Simulated scan of single mutants.
Amino acid sequence: MSDAERTFVMVKPDGVQRGLIGEIVSRFEDRGLKLVGAKFTRIPEEQAQEHYRELEDEPFFDGLVEFITSGPVLAMVWEGQDATRQVRNMMGKTDPAESPPGTIRGDLGLDLGRNVIHGSDHEEDGANEREIDLFFDEDELHDYEKVDETWLYE
């Protein structure tokens, strides 16, 4: 696959508690994206603060850190052509009430503060690389060729 891009995605504690991991992973697999890394983990407070560092001056920062550390998450790295844009479109808007049906947040999210999923954004320079590096060592990411790649990309 040429022009493959990697992007960071996380099923948040509410998505884990609600049993939505399989549904979310299936949506990305159905889209043709390739899972190259996954880790079921509980985020330490320091790592959560680093993850959300661009929001540290916001009044909701402490609550955000408290929530993301409240239970296990599934951190993942997905690969595909224009993977970040594809994932962002599939997730929907941050507020589930503004996300159209068919998106992950539009179908599964209930509340702005409980929107089940996080994905890296192109708009913050280096967000993908920074978030991937924050959650994964290089040896935890796997290069492999999927048998269906020739059917997905020209």
Rank of each mutant, 00 (worst) to 15 (best):
Val147Glu: 10
Arg53Thr: 15
Gly106Cys: 11
Gly63Trp: 11
Glu45Pro: 13
Gln47Asn: 15
Glu5Asp: 11
Arg6His: 15
Asp62Thr: 11
Phe40Lys: 05
Phe136Met: 11
Ser70Phe: 09
Val116Glu: 05
Gln17Gly: 12
Ser26Gly: 10
Lys146Pro: 12
Gly80Asp: 00
Thr7Phe: 02
Gln86Asn: 15
Ile43Leu: 13
His118Thr: 05
Leu141Phe: 00
Met76Phe: 15
Asp14Glu: 15
Ser26Arg: 15
Glu46Pro: 06
Pro13Phe: 13
Asp82Gly: 08
Pro13Thr: 08
Val11Thr: 02
Ser99Arg: 06
Val25Ala: 14
Leu112Gly: 05
Lys39Gln: 07
Thr84Ser: 05
Pro100Leu: 11
Glu58Asp: 08
Arg130Leu: 11
Val147Gly: 03
Met10Asn: 13
Glu149Thr: 15
Pro96Lys: 12
Ala97Cys: 13
Met90Cys: 05
Gly109Gln: 06
Asp62Phe: 13
Pro96Gly: 04
Ile68Val: 10
Phe60His: 09
Glu46Ile: 08
Asn128Lys: 06
Lys93Ile: 07
Thr150Ser: 13
Asn115Phe: 12
Ile117Pro: 00
Ser2Lys: 13
Trp151Thr: 12
Glu46Lys: 15
Phe136Ile: 07
Leu55Tyr: 14
Pro59Asp: 15
Thr41Cys: 07
Glu131Val: 02
Gly22Trp: 01
Glu131Tyr: 00
Leu55Cys: 13
Pro101Lys: 08
Gln81Phe: 02
Gln86Gly: 09
Gln47Glu: 10
Lys39Val: 07
Met91Ala: 08
Glu129Pro: 03
Pro59Thr: 11
Glu129Ile: 06
Glu154Ser: 10
Gln86Asp: 12
Thr94Tyr: 02
Val73Ala: 03
Leu33Asp: 05
Gly63Asn: 12
Gly32Lys: 07
Tyr144Ser: 05
Arg42Asp: 02
Tyr153Cys: 05
Thr103Ile: 03
Val36Pro: 01
His122Tyr: 11
Asp133Gln: 08
Glu56Arg: 12
Phe60Lys: 03
Ile68Met: 04
Lys34His: 01
Gly32Val: 11
Arg53Asp: 13
